[in-house]
């Protein structure tokens, strides 16, 4: 009994030393050559964001983002190791060097770009107004006199609520989650809804969901591949690789496969 305490102390001191020695080595930005000589590409993903990242029947990660990561590994000639992160964990995973890249619906914003660097957009998603095929809706004005559903607190809620304040007669119905919103649309309790541009693929699975279409976009978000700040070497390679993915139609194919529709026009910067 008496010797257990020193051993435990010794172990924790050893762990501390190991952590101090090990940490600085992993925080170094990995160049393309480092990744190839290490023999694997480490990518942060999120498996709770269908259709971009989710788990398939065998509980293997799959989705648009996961396939992009796999294709990146193929291009580099190395296998991909996935690290699952939550949405707030994306930036820290790059800053601590746990991963080489983040491919996880990582919207490009100026605030985030202070801490990490982004590739050119490889995908984009719009918040759109969705309504039955027969109705004529092309702008906020056409929503006057209609019931418009949104999920409480989303970007669509903000944009459409602002519109309803300028245009009295737009009746806003706010639901607690996306499934209630879709159900309200399918059961005809609302005339139009604000949602993601992939919303149709879920509507089409619901009963009578074929009769809906996207009417007009509210706002478009662009997803970039995140790399550690100032890792220009890797970022430049990713941008070059993305050019090929766009020009040979690979990205477009992935979008049709997972999102059921083409990508929006992707700007470069």
């Amino acid at each position: 009994m008496r010797y257990q305490l020193p051993y435990a102390m010794l172990a924790s001191v050893a762990a501390l030393i190991f952590a101090l020695v090990a940490l600085p080595t992993v925080t170094m930005a990995q160049s393309v050559n480092d990744i190839i000589s290490r023999g694997k590409l480490i990518v942060a993903i999120d498996t709770t964001t269908p259709p971009y990242g989710f788990l398939d029947e065998k509980l293997e990660p799959t989705g648009f983002d996961i396939d992009v990561a796999k294709k990146m590994g193929e291009a580099l000639g190395v296998p991909v190791e996935f690290v699952t992160v939550t949405s707030p964990g994306r930036i820290p995973s790059l800053m601590t060097g746990q991963v080489d890249a983040v491919i996880s619906i990582f919207s490009i914003t100026p605030q985030r770009a202070i801490q990490v660097d982004y590739s050119n957009p490889y995908a984009g998603q719009s918040a759109v107004v969705i309504a039955p095929t027969g109705t004529q809706i092309a702008s906020h004005e056409d929503l006057v006199g209609k019931k418009v559903g949104v999920t409480r607190g989303t970007a669509e809620d903000g944009i459409l609520t602002a519109a309803s304040e300028k245009l009295p007669g737009i009746e806003m119905l706010r639901f607690d989650d996306y499934s209630s919103l879709l159900q309200a649309m399918v059961s005809g309790q609302i005339d139009a809804m604000g949602g993601g541009d992939y919303g149709e693929i879920y509507l089409k699975k619901a009963q009578g969901g074929d009769a809906f279409e996207q009417k007009y976009p509210l706002k478009t978000y662009y997803f970039g591949i995140g790399v550690a700040k100032d890792n220009h070497n890797l970022r430049q390679w990713i941008n070059t690789w993305l050019l090929g993915m766009k020009s040979d139609g690979s990205l477009e194919d992935l979008s049709m496969q997972y999102r059921g529709q083409p990508l929006p026009a992707l700007p470069v910067f």
């Binding site: 209630s180 159900q183 309200a184 059961s187 005809g188 309790q189």
Partner: peptide, 9 residues
């Protein structure tokens, strides 16, 4: 849910 979502059907 039943009254709001199902009765319209």
């Amino acid at each position: 849910y039943f009254v709001f979502f199902t009765l319209p059907l």
